[in-house]
Design a binder for these strands. Structure first.
Lengths: 201, 201
DNA sequence: TGTACATCAGTGAACGCGCGTTCACTGATGTAC
DNA sequence: TGTACATCAGTGAACGCGCGTTCACTGATGTAC
């Protein structure tokens, strides 16, 4: 073989990583393969040594972005309980979800779609293209479970999806609005609404 | 003049109507001017007698779709109180918002994006294109006011935005999911969560 | 009423461009001997 | 150690296509006389 044995796999991962960023930032239609490959120091012809089509790359990138986002959530929920122990008045399980929600509804997440959750950026486009994705199903299910496990919602088991819908909607609206203060206000209002009510110590 | 005095205005409205439908159904990037004009029995060259650019049409179509959606909301909230009088146990102001929410989170709305609210279909694309729109600001503000006026949320005045975010997110997710039952479940869960708790008669 | 003219919504060919995809080729490397 | 060969990731020109936009033109109509 011409290159080291895992060279091709590494290039494939580099393509997926850059594509996942660009799809989230500029949309699927807004991301061309020529500039994508050029940004990696490659020529576009080589793309098809790695993927059967642009759609195959979309699928792989969506999976990568979903995995990355879920890992971030899991890291948050895993790290937060340590803090929660410092404030034992808060029921166990509330603090982790606070961290996830605050992170998700942050100005940083709004302003850097390329690094964030693929749902607010890509879900609508997947729907519009008539390409609903089983990856979306799985992602939503796992996110919902994480939210529900943390007992944020009072509802009988399906509460997580309401919080997720509000978070995805809030980010979508916050990015579409032209007034910065209004955008901040949307994030703050949903953040406040989804937090468990503060308790007296 | 060659045509009746309001002929041009009528054609302009026909273009906006068809465009508003197509933008919501196929996205902005996914809607071409040539097929759009052809669908109206016109040729694409004539487009520029009516609009300066595709972006100008996007703006006009977004305004039309926003107006149409708000009128639908207002019609719902205006019509519903008559029913509410039949069940006086429900506080005045709850029934109208029920009608709006049920309509918004219906299978019909999910399956016919071309006739529905432009936020779930176009907000993300406007954000991605770097074209946040003051029309979106105004639309969100008015929808939020309608929801808040109906006292759905317990929060201090900014509750409407949480309900709107949940509704927009729910529709977006319901359209992106490949499993029909899961999609129905998302709509039902958010519908249930946003309704005021049922009261005994 | 009848004719000549001005108007202008709409026509249709053409433009340059970027798109996704194909394909014959290159050339640096690992392997075989 | 040195040479010949096979591999294959990546190259770069080319393809057909649809896009948004431009523009000289058409021809049905309202208006002026």
């Amino acid at each position: 073989m011409r290159y080291s044995s895992n060279h091709k796999a590494e290039t494939r991962q580099r393509i997926i990583g850059e594509a996942a960023r660009r799809f989230r930032k500029h949309g699927i239609e807004g991301t061309g393969l020529v500039p994508l490959m050029k940004a990696l120091g490659l020529t576009h012809g080589g793309f098809y040594a790695h993927f059967e089509s642009k759609d195959a790359l979309v699928q792989a990138s969506l999976e990568a972005a979903a995995e990355q986002t879920l890992e971030r959530w899991q890291a948050s929920t895993a790290a937060a309980p340590a803090d929660a122990m410092l404030t034992p008045a808060t029921p166990a399980g509330d603090e982790p979800v606070r961290a996830v929600i605050d992170d998700y509804l942050s100005a940083r997440h709004r302003d850097e779609p390329g690094e964030g959750c693929p749902l607010p950026t890509l879900a609508a486009e997947l729907g519009v293209r008539g390409q609903p994705s089983a990856t979306a199903d799985a992602m939503i299910e796992q996110m919902t479970a994480l939210l529900a496990d943390c007992h944020l919602e009072a509802g009988p088991g399906d509460g997580g999806i309401v919080a997720l819908a509000a978070m995805v909607g809030a980010l979508t609206l916050a990015r579409a609005v032209s007034d910065r203060a209004a955008s901040d206000g949307i994030l703050a209002a949903v953040r406040a609404a989804l937090q468990p009510a503060p308790r007296e110590a």
